[in-house]
């Protein structure tokens, strides 16, 4: 029947519709949050203050030393800024997916499944709140300071790599949020595990890889692709040696790692939804 628009859609159209569904849902939640304006303002301020403390801790540490694992304060600022920006933006865009278990228990996932929009878009945009802008905003400030303070000749390859790592990092954290939340289809308490990947992982990336054991660095390079968020590309930007001695190509591979993460998260989500609906296992 012709009256039902867009029934046979191409991949691009489906992606566009997924993004549009996210926007529509997020816009509703933003309006809903405005019903409680005072609370919104307070939470935004509290958010900025609390996340700012993160970097204050790093600054305080440098009152007693010039270097940490061979990295200076502006260099650590780059680590912190990139990691916090990627995590904060991913959290803003898809972070709500971590309440998937609650949606399942309350039966609201069923309500999403009867709408002609992708369930993933709706879950990710659930309780979307602009107050989560606090973290990326603060990260941007730290990043701006670090970029100007660090002793780096900002050639075009370094600028390009910085831009690419911010995008790739956001995508990698988004994939971790979604992939981790997918575990909740099978295991209700998986939220804590996922939080340790995302929030825990971001904190790990605030510090240089040289302060950690090689096994851990290898784990977040070849296991969870956290090293691609900022460690590896920053090695090139800052001209530092790789503690693992990997080929230089790894320092440019963040977009590939991001693409791979999205693929894995996408497959996991589909498998999870299929298990929930009861097709297959």
């Amino acid at each position: 029947m012709a009256e039902y628009l867009g029934e046979r859609e191409s991949g691009v159209e489906r992606l566009r519709w997924a993004v549009r569904s996210w926007q529509l849902t997020a816009a509703m939640w933003t309006r809903a949050a405005m019903a409680y304006r005072a609370s919104f303002a307070l939470m935004l301020v509290a958010n900025v203050l609390i996340t700012s403390l993160d970097f204050v801790v790093v600054v305080l540490m440098f009152q007693h030393t010039d270097r940490l694992g061979g990295w200076t304060l502006p260099e650590l600022g780059l680590l912190y800024g990139t990691s916090a920006f990627a995590l904060g933006t991913a959290d803003l865009l898809v972070g709500s997916v971590d309440s998937l278990g609650e949606r399942i228990r309350a039966g609201t996932l069923d309500v999403m499944l009867i709408r002609p929009a992708p369930a993933l878009s709706q879950v990710c945009a659930e309780r979307f709140s602009l107050r989560r802008l606090g973290r990326p905003a603060q990260a941007t400030a730290v990043l701006a300071w670090s970029v100007s303070a660090v002793r780096v000749d900002w050639t075009w390859d370094r600028v390009l790599l910085l831009a690419a790592l911010l995008v790739s990092g956001t995508v990698i954290f988004s994939a971790l949020f979604i992939g981790g939340a997918t575990l909740q289809f099978w295991w209700g308490e998986a939220k804590e595990l996922q939080n340790s990947f995302t929030y825990g992982g971001a904190t790990l990336l605030h510090y240089p890889p040289t302060v950690f054991a090689k096994e851990l660095v290898a784990g977040v390079t070849f296991g969870l692709p956290l090293a691609f968020v900022n460690w590896l590309p920053l090695l090139h930007i800052l001209g530092k040696p790789d503690p693992l001695g990997l080929p230089a190509a790894f320092q440019f591979a963040s977009p590939l790692a991001a693409a791979g993460s999205v693929l894995v998260a996408g497959v996991a989500w589909r498998a999870g939804l299929r298990a929930y609906r009861g097709a297959g296992n």
Binding site: T25, G107, D110, L113, P118
Partner: peptide, 30 residues
């Protein structure tokens, strides 16, 4: 599922599809 969704209407007596904090009109607009 999504193709079917345009052809069916569902009302769960115990679960609302409306937006709690928004005027009724906004849910219809969505």
């Amino acid at each position: 599922r999504t193709r079917l969704a345009r052809r069916i209407g569902v009302v769960f007596g115990q679960r609302t599809t409306l937006w709690w904090d928004l005027p009724l009109r906004d849910s219809y607009e969505l």
